[in-house]
């Protein structure tokens, strides 16, 4: 079974194992680096395409200092005018950060939304990821007051998930506010 321990062979053994493992990891990292980046870009592109009107060219990611804004993309029409914005917006949900991609038209109307990442309760708050649900459908072309009905706004909250609904609404409000400030 195991060899007898001495300071020398312990140090040698640990060093050797760590070196080999580091080499294995280095190779794997190098091999997977490109696919991982490609997957991340593809995912970002897909989520942008989902929340914006079809067609026009989309810019590189822009950064902003506004609260909760991770970045945004500008979509320009063929004549060079801005046709829409896709904003990556984050707020605190019920179980952790809730990150959304929000498509906003230059007049501040929401075009569509999509969830990038969340840690909401399965079966309750996590319903905000269900496309075609009433909660998600109401955002298409939404231009009302950005607050849930309980707080005096026009947003229908998900049943039993007011905190998630509020967070979702707040993330959209952040995005709309950013677009309004960019348009001014």
């Amino acid at each position: 079974m195991a060899a007898k321990s001495s300071l020398r062979n312990m140090a040698l053994c640990l060093t050797a194992v760590c070196l080999v493992c580091a080499a294995v990891l280095g190779v794997t990292y190098a091999v997977t680096k490109e696919p991982i980046e490609a997957a991340a870009v593809a995912e970002a592109q897909a989520s942008i395409a989902k929340v914006l009107p079809k067609g026009d060219a989309i810019s590189e990611e822009q950064t902003s200092d506004a609260e909760g804004i991770l970045g945004y993309y500008v979509q320009t029409a063929a004549d060079g005018s801005v046709s829409a914005y896709a904003v990556k917006s984050v707020t605190g949900g019920f179980g952790g950060p809730l990150t959304l991609m929000v498509g906003v038209l230059p007049d501040g109307t929401v075009f569509n939304t999509s969830v990038l990442s969340h840690s909401e309760t399965p079966g309750l708050g996590a319903k905000c990821t269900e496309e075609n649900s009433h909660f998600r459908e109401q955002w298409k072309g939404f231009a009302g007051r950005l607050a849930v009905t309980k707080d005096g706004g026009d947003v229908d909250a998900i049943t039993a998930s007011t905190i998630t609904s509020r967070a979702y609404t707040k993330a959209i409000a952040q995005a709309v506010a950013l677009v309004k400030s960019l348009e001014d």
């Binding site: 195991a2 060899a3 321990s5 001495s6 312990m10 053994c13 640990l14 194992v17 990891l25 794997t28």
Partner: peptide, 27 residues
């Protein structure tokens, strides 16, 4: 196992396992 000194076998095993997990994660 036959060449790993007894006193450091746990750290060695953990390094091996952690390496495979990280490889899996990247893949």
């Amino acid at each position: 196992a036959p060449v790993v000194p007894d006193k450091v076998h746990i750290p060695v095993y953990i390094v091996v396992i952690a390496t495979f997990v990280t490889v899996l994660q990247l893949l």
